[in-house]
Computed example of a mutant assay.
Amino acid sequence: MGRGARVRRVRRGGAARAAEDYATLDQLSGGRLDIIIGKGNDPDQNALFGYEPDGQWDRNREKYELLRRVLRETGVSWSGRYRPALTKATTQPRPYRSDGASAGRRTGGTRRRLWWAPGSTGCT
């Protein structure tokens, strides 16, 4: 069986849509799918998506935290600064693994490097 990688930018639907897409592929792979999330490092990318560069770190952290919650929990109630609130939301399908996902995020740059993995709150 071959291996492959696919990179996809999630433009509409945000964390909830990404969670559903991830869980679908996770189910099909029997729990062998990992997700890696990156912010990008070119300031022009912010303008491309209509974001102000000043909020990029907070926006990325908020989106990642929501993604982790909707993958791991059911009935998620959540409010944040960068998207409308959720009330008792459950994404379908659910991930194959009971812990929700093997999700890690690494953002790069010369000024700040962050790493989050399941159960981690550390920064390097």
Rank of each mutant, 00 (worst) to 15 (best):
S29I: 05
T107P: 03
W115I: 11
P95S: 05
T110E: 14
D34I: 03
G55C: 12
D44T: 12
A101G: 11
F49P: 02
I37D: 00
W116D: 15
A101E: 06
Q56C: 12
L33H: 07
D58Y: 09
K63F: 10
A85D: 10
S98K: 13
R106S: 13
G104N: 08
D99I: 09
A47F: 07
N41I: 14
G75R: 06
D99N: 12
D26H: 00
N41W: 14
S79A: 07
I37R: 11
T107K: 07
D26Y: 04
L67C: 03
S120M: 08
D34W: 11
A47H: 02
G109F: 07
T90D: 02
V70P: 02
P43T: 06
D54E: 15
Y51D: 15
N46D: 11
D54M: 09
R32L: 12
G55Y: 13
G50L: 05
G40N: 04
D42P: 07
P84F: 01
R61V: 07
A103T: 14
V70A: 03
G75H: 02
A101L: 01
G104D: 10
R81F: 03
L114W: 15
R32F: 00
D26S: 04
L33N: 04
E65L: 07
R72F: 03
E62F: 01
G100V: 04
A89L: 12
S98Q: 11
P95M: 09
T90S: 05
R105I: 14
E73V: 03
L28G: 09
N46M: 10
V70C: 10
R111W: 15
D26R: 02
L28D: 06
G108P: 05
